[in-house]
């Protein structure tokens, strides 16, 4: 098995490892795959850098989840939009149930 031993912060992973590293990072890898990905990443500089970065990226994305963020004052629908929505609801109430 070949391991990259670059110095620096290159994060282009070994081609055959990319999918496994992604699954290790987002916690969807089965145990054996996860073990193999971590084993490889611990010995390969590029894959190690990639795993570290992609794990941090996924964490940041999960923190973006809209429900976790406060609503800004202008972060809403206009009055006209709400009026259109209310009209739509009225139409729904009038329409026969499926």
């Amino acid at each position: 098995m070949n391991f990259h031993k670059d110095s620096g912060d290159s994060f282009e992973p070994c081609k055959h490892m990319e999918a496994m590293l992604n699954r290790a990072a987002d916690e969807t890898a089965p145990p054996a795959m996860r073990w193999y990905a971590l084993y490889h990443a611990a010995r390969c500089t590029r894959c190690g850098n990639f795993l570290k970065r992609v794990t941090a990226l996924i964490r940041q994305l999960r923190d973006m989840k809209s429900e976790k963020q406060p609503v800004a004052p202008d972060d809403g629908l206009s009055t006209e939009r709400w009026q259109a929505i209310e009209s739509g609801w009225t139409e729904v109430e009038k329409s026969p149930k499926v």
Partner: peptide, 17 residues
């Protein structure tokens, strides 16, 4: 804004049903 409006109406239909 259009798709949020559509979502609110479609979701209400599902809610009512």
């Amino acid at each position: 804004q259009d798709i949020v409006q559509d979502t609110m109406i479609s979701a209400y239909r599902a809610f009512v049903e």
